[in-house]
Amino acid sequence: MAKGKGVRVMVILECTRCVRNEVNGASRGISRYITQKNRHNTPNQLELKKFCPYCYESTIHGEIKK
């Protein structure tokens, strides 16, 4: 029998500042992190402050859809 989806799911966090700072349709890069979250404890989208190597500082990284 197939089991249902687990409680913990994989999510991708993307830098919100790099996405907005595109110059002429091209950016230097977009920082992404992969992590897990508990679906029952945090049903809304996850936002964490992580280091972005393209911005050279800690910025807000938000959850994106796969």
Rank of each mutant, 00 (worst) to 15 (best):
C52G: 01
K66G: 09
Y56N: 14
H61L: 13
N38A: 02
S31M: 08
S27E: 08
L48H: 01
L46N: 00
E63W: 03
E47F: 02
P53A: 12
Y56S: 12
G62F: 03
N41Q: 02
M1P: 00
E63S: 06
A2D: 03
V19Q: 13
H40T: 06
A2N: 05
E22R: 11
F51K: 09
G6A: 13
E57A: 15
S27Y: 10
Q45P: 02
K49D: 05
Y54S: 09
E63H: 04
S27Q: 14
I34P: 00
V7N: 06
C52Q: 04
G29D: 01
R20A: 14
L48S: 01
G25S: 12
S58Y: 09
C18L: 13
I64L: 15
R28T: 05
I12A: 12
I30C: 10
V9G: 03
T42Y: 06
I60T: 14
N24K: 14
C18P: 01
R39Q: 05
G29M: 09
M10L: 09
K65T: 09
M10Q: 10
V19R: 12
K66Q: 09
M10P: 03
I60G: 02
S31V: 02
R39Y: 03
R39W: 01
K49P: 05
G4L: 06
K37D: 00
H40D: 04
I34S: 08
T35N: 04
I64N: 06
T35C: 04
I12P: 00
Q36I: 08
E22Q: 05
H61D: 01
G62E: 06
F51D: 02
Q45W: 06
K65I: 10
K50C: 14
A26C: 04
T35D: 05
Y56V: 13
S31N: 07
V23T: 03
C55I: 08
R39K: 10
C52A: 11
G29N: 05
R8K: 13
N41S: 08
T42E: 06
L48I: 05
K50P: 00
N38R: 02
S31K: 08
I64V: 15
G6Y: 02
S31T: 05
K49Y: 06
V9I: 13
S31Y: 02
Y33T: 10
I30F: 07
N41K: 08
M10I: 12
R32V: 11
M1Q: 01
Y54A: 10
E14P: 00
I12Q: 11
Y56G: 06
S58G: 07
H61T: 03
L13A: 02
N24Y: 08
L48Q: 02
I12T: 14
E57H: 08
